[in-house]
Nucleic acid binder design. Structure first.
Lengths: 379, 379
DNA sequence: CTTGCGCTCGCAATCGATTGCGTTGGAGCA
DNA sequence: TGCTCCAACGCAATCGATTGCGAGCGCAAG
């Protein structure tokens, strides 16, 4: 016995003793002073649990928290825990957040949820964050810096503990400022030029190399690149690696064969293709900045009465969902969407738990998926 | 002048400094060595604003809230507002939620974010909720009732003010219980059998009728239906309307031509098609429960060496993104995804503002999009 | 039989904003 | 001049949980 008979020596009245000795049912029957037979109108609070267990709310709090449970007697703790269970007690996360200034939630900043690239990443993130006790706020920026700023501000008001950001640009002082302020931050999919923020990206360079080798192996010599926006790491890396690959394969680097699309969209891809063809580029293959741009090429080719892969081969990037069902099925570089999410969430969790681990970035391997949009070059 | 010049007449002084040093000691222990003597170390609170304006926090609160501003002198209010602006004050939503038991956030319950049907709906919801000052928590249930329950519980702990649910089943006592408890609830995409919860759905019956007329007009007489799960309103309505349409067009209703798929997925669709063909159904057209099931049919047909639309025409449902780029481009019933989200959010907002308007449900019109997966019946 | 120490637990402050109620000062009226 | 009444604010409680501090208690050492 760790405790004597007097469970509550300080309390003036004998209420404590009555609660202690009496059976639970008994004390209810005897305690006519408390006619509280209310039908659970409001959810039980910590105070309810404490009363039910005959302890102070502070003790109940400590008993319920594994971190502080050692500060309370084992028997008492167990009694509190049982009381909590029987009342169906759940801590109020709002109240907890107010006191601890932790929200157990993080922000998830993406350009546009309807871009098929992101849902799998989001799932990966949530599947890691959820079991860890965190939830994610998702916001869309539509690639608008102002909107991005506003959305992130909003997230900060909500007291998010960290941010996973998929909208990084190479030059992004705003994000760098946040990171410098000490806000836990992880970039996914794209990164900044300075590279001082932890990130999870696919190995774009390796992917472009794979794609280029594939095209060269098919006999293509005049290969064009419809690049994505050059203010993003993905756009820049893929474009520069494209030129490097040309050199590696002893192919000429013609400026006419390189077009920068205004955005990572189908429309921009179609526009880019028109620009390419209008410039008189007589290519036999196109490396698209991503799958959506590749889809734009499909449209653009159809407009001009050309066919893929018969007239022009196309390689995409990302292997978006249903890329295998397209017409023609898209040859593309597969990036591990889900794994990017998982790794990103993991990185953020590490950062949240151990404040100052040094910046660690992850580069994920990718593979080439050959389908129907590429064919041997016409000879 | 309403108040004297003293900005801080009440505070004994020094408290700020004491707090400051305490915090520093703490953060040092935690690892972050930040010799913070800056007044901007933590975001300004209402108290800071009040001090700066020379009023009591209560007055500042009232001045800042348009609802209660009439309780405070115009000049004073303006002074407070200016002080707030110059300090960059933002109310702490956590603290506000604790006191008001409002969270300005709602829950969004969907089966799976990677199902292309949902992102556009989510965007619609967010585009309405955001400007109204609400944010949305998104959770995935994977169509698992246990997971759904757990996720919704989690949302309730987070004090969401309402729920938009896309996972309704025809019999769904759990949801009905929530609604009965008074939790603002709106169903999107699917509804319950009892129909006593506000909902926003597409006019499935009309859609099926359109699709059937299209097939009949093409000369098809033996039409099969790969239905979705019959415990959902969409699955049931589409299936029963299918049979009704057969009757309307004087076509026989053969049980062999009706198969229920286990889920709304590609895999289930492929499986359903195998079952259909194995049963010896010699149909010339298939009405699929939704686009993913239709995609499964593409796979299934390929397995059997049959072709679409040459051998069998297929009509989908939903017009998911990129349905026009598939091989063959999918003829399908287009539902207004984005509008469903918008209407759903609107309904919830109505409910949140005016507590007891009577249940109102919205049925959205849809259209048939004819593409390459349907062709005249072989004669 | 003291003194002392450590284990448990209660007290009260605290997080930041909201709100019922009481107080003040001045205008209005007799 | 005296009294009522109202506008304009301040005071303090409150939401629910967390946590530094201190007070009893038991037990062991002196």
């Amino acid at each position: 016995m760790t405790r004597g008979p007097g469970p509550d020596p300080a309390r003036p009245g004998g209420t404590g003793g009555a609660e202690e000795t009496g059976e639970v049912a008994h004390s209810i029957a005897a305690g006519g002073a408390v006619p509280d037979i209310r039908p659970m109108s409001r959810p039980p609070t910590l105070r309810d649990v404490a009363d039910s267990a005959g302890v102070h709310p502070a003790t109940a709090s400590r008993a319920l928290n594994p971190e502080t449970r050692r500060l309370v007697n084992t028997d008492t703790a167990e009694r509190v825990i049982r009381a909590a269970a029987s009342l169906g007690y759940r801590p109020n996360p709002i109240a907890r957040s107010l006191k601890t200034s932790r929200s157990t939630s993080v922000g998830l900043v993406i350009p546009d949820l309807t871009n098929p690239l992101f849902p799998p990443i989001v799932r990966g993130i949530e599947d890691v964050l959820g079991p860890a006790g965190y939830n994610a706020w998702i916001v869309n920026t539509d690639n608008d810096p102002d909107r991005e700023r506003a959305q992130i501000e909003s997230l900060r008001f909500r007291q998010v503990e960290g941010l996973i950001v998929a909208t990084a640009r190479l030059e992004h002082p705003f994000l760098e400022g946040l990171a410098a302020d000490g806000l836990p931050l992880v970039l996914v999919n794209r990164r900044t030029a300075r590279g001082d923020i932890p990130s999870v990206t696919a190995d774009d360079a390796a992917g472009v190399a794979l794609a280029m080798r594939h095209l060269v192996d098919l006999g293509h010599r005049r290969i064009a690149h419809l690049a994505g926006p050059q203010d993003t790491s993905t756009g820049r890396t893929r474009a520069s690696t494209f030129r490097q690959a040309l050199a590696d394969h002893n192919l000429p680097d013609e400026p006419r064969l390189r077009v920068e699309c205004a955005s990572w969209t189908e429309a921009a891809g179609a526009q880019g293709l028109r620009q390419l063809l209008d410039a008189g580029a007589d290519c036999t293959a196109i490396l698209a900045g991503n799958d959506l741009i590749a889809l734009g090429c499909y449209d653009g080719l159809a407009e001009r009465g050309a066919r893929c892969p018969d007239d022009i081969s196309i390689v995409g990037f990302n292997d978006m969902p249903y890329a295998d069902k397209l017409n023609p099925p898209l040859t593309t570089v597969r990036i591990p969407h889900y794994a990017i999410g998982v790794e990103g969430a993991q990185l953020l969790l590490d950062r949240l738990r151990g404040p100052h681990r040094h910046t660690r970035s992850v580069l994920l391997p990718l593979t080439l998926v050959v389908r129907g949009s590429t064919a041997p070059a016409r000879t």
